[in-house]
Simulated assay, not measured.
Amino acid sequence: MSACCDEDDAHIAELRERQTRMLWAVLAINASMFLVEFTAGWLAASNALMGDSLDMLGDTLVYGLSLFVVARSDRWKAVSAGFKGTIMLGFGLLVLGDAVAKAWSGDTPQYGIMAAVGLLALLANTLCLVLLTRHRGDDVNMRSAWVCSRNDLVANSGVLVAAALVAGTGSRWPDVIVGAAIAALFLRSAIGVLGQARLTLTGAGPPRRVSRS
């Protein structure tokens, strides 16, 4: 029995080490892309690109929290997931408010900058999703981090679609609509993550699964 326990402890320690290395990698990618997208969104007057940059900032905070709780209890991980859900909710409301403001008055964004930076963000987030996918079933902490990364791909694709439509129509409306859609995605995901965190905290959620792959 003791040997079996030692083997399990060694496996869990190895798993936590892999999770930590992966989370540092995706944190660095998202922090770098936030700076790039925020600057580009400001220069291009793009609501969709600014929304995507705030998502990058939110993810940077999310992965930082995930690193903090990676070796802690399920309760800590559920609290972290709940905080992530709150961040997602806040950014969703912020982007939605910006979309409403630009619907009333705003300049047509520069679609060339939108397309170039949106494509770069898509490639960066695809790499992050690949890194996170292996660990998405480990626990609520890693699952919520994976959800954030999956949402990024949808948001990045939306920026590229908006850029193409702005180029084709000469109107700011595609940018406004995509920005609002990104906000709706954030809000929906935030509700899901908060619900999963609540279930884990109350003991109604599924037990933690430790992968042996």
Rank of each mutant, 00 (worst) to 15 (best):
M1G: 13
M1L: 00
A3N: 15
A3V: 02
C4V: 13
C4R: 04
C5V: 03
D6W: 12
E7M: 14
E7N: 05
A13M: 10
L15H: 10
L15P: 01
Q19I: 10
R21Y: 07
M22G: 08
L23Y: 09
W24R: 05
L27D: 09
L27N: 12
A28P: 03
I29G: 02
A31S: 14
M33F: 10
E37R: 08
T39K: 10
G41K: 11
G41Q: 15
W42I: 00
L49E: 00
M50Q: 06
D52G: 05
L54Q: 14
L54M: 14
L61C: 07
Y63P: 00
L65V: 08
F68I: 14
V70E: 04
R72P: 02
S73V: 00
D74W: 00
D74C: 03
R75H: 12
W76C: 07
K77M: 10
V79M: 13
A81S: 13
G85C: 09
L93H: 11
V95S: 01
G97H: 06
D98R: 14
V100G: 06
K102D: 06
S105Q: 13
D107R: 15
P109W: 03
Q110D: 08
G112A: 12
I113R: 13
M114I: 07
M114Y: 05
A116E: 11
A116N: 00
V117R: 04
V117A: 06
L119A: 11
L120T: 10
L122V: 01
L122A: 13
N125C: 04
T126A: 15
L129F: 07
L129M: 11
H135C: 08
R136S: 13
V147E: 08
C148W: 14
S149P: 05
S149W: 07
L153Q: 15
V154N: 07
A155T: 07
N156P: 02
S157R: 07
L160N: 04
V161A: 08
V161S: 07
A164N: 02
A164Y: 01
A164P: 03
V166L: 07
W173V: 13
D175W: 06
D175N: 06
V176F: 01
I177F: 15
F186Y: 11
F186I: 02
G192P: 01
G195F: 06
G195P: 12
T200A: 13
L201Y: 09
R208H: 05
